[in-house]
Amino acid sequence: MVVVYFLFVLLALASSCAFASDPSPLQDFCVAVNDPNSAVFVNGKFCKDPKLAMADDFFFTKFRYPGNTSNQLGSKVTTAFVDQFPGLNTLGIAMARLDFAPYGLNPPHIHPRGTEMLAVMEGTLRVGFVTSNQLNNTLFTKVLTKGDVFVFPQGLIHFQLNIGQTNALAFAFLSSQNPGLITIANSVFASNPPINVDVLTKAFQVDNKLINYLQEQNWFDNH
């Protein structure tokens, strides 16, 4: 009986813990304030009264038009995250349209709050992601053609490169209304204020002149 009672208590505790977890963050940070008048937004977005909702709240047209790929990356990502598409609020999903010029690149980046599934509509893309240090930073990469799908696990560095001589088009589906975006090169070399050169020379094991050069570049954001 003692054993049965002990198991019952453990199950009750496990159940209570399962229902007590915090919600996943939907923004980079949310600093607590005691004065509600100082609040800007909550974890996510405030909700419209459901009685005032309209069909247009759930309608998005910006994927109709190709993105402008006339830039140094040769790519353009058009996002349908909650900031651009308010009807996604609380639904846990988002999308993006990815346009590529020949040999265009969507550079290495991460989505800290969402897994991404990529579907190729036109062209040929080389895609890949790198695992964490725990799995020895292993690269998983494939060449995708029309109709192929590839998934990038949440929080892992990934990229897409058009290896064809024609334009390419893909659509991404993400498991968060606000999956976030951290482009690796932009974050490291174009932070404001700049990261101390000594930090980067040790981290990348290169000469400080190279770090200075990289920090002086115009790091383009294709989103």
Rank of each mutant, 00 (worst) to 15 (best):
V31G: 05
A32R: 15
A32W: 15
V33R: 07
N34F: 12
N34Q: 14
P36V: 12
P36F: 11
N37I: 09
A39L: 14
F41R: 15
F41V: 14
F41P: 04
N43I: 08
G44Q: 03
K45D: 10
F46L: 13
K48V: 09
P50C: 05
K51C: 06
K51L: 12
K51W: 04
A53F: 05
M54E: 13
A55N: 13
D57N: 15
D57Y: 10
D57M: 10
T61E: 09
K62E: 12
K62R: 15
F63T: 11
F63Q: 10
N68G: 03
N68S: 09
T79F: 11
A80Q: 04
F81N: 13
F81R: 09
V82A: 10
D83Q: 14
Q84E: 14
P86G: 10
G87D: 06
G87F: 05
L88Y: 03
N89K: 15
T90P: 06
L91Y: 06
G92P: 08
M95L: 13
F100Y: 04
F100W: 01
N106T: 00
P107R: 00
H109P: 02
I110D: 04
I110Y: 02
I110H: 03
H111Y: 07
H111R: 13
P112R: 06
T115A: 10
T115M: 08
E116C: 08
M117C: 12
L118A: 03
A119Y: 12
V120M: 02
V120K: 01
M121E: 09
M121H: 11
E122N: 13
G123C: 01
R126P: 07
F129P: 03
V130A: 02
T131R: 05
Q134H: 15
L135S: 15
L135A: 14
N136S: 14
N136P: 07
N137K: 13
L139S: 02
L144E: 04
T145D: 11
T145A: 10
T145C: 11
G147L: 05
D148Y: 11
D148M: 06
D148E: 06
V149M: 09
V149W: 03
F150V: 06
F150E: 02
F150P: 08
P153E: 09
Q154M: 14
H158M: 04
L161M: 09
I163D: 01
G164N: 06
G164Q: 03
Q165L: 10
Q165C: 08
Q165H: 13
L169M: 08
F171L: 06
A172W: 00
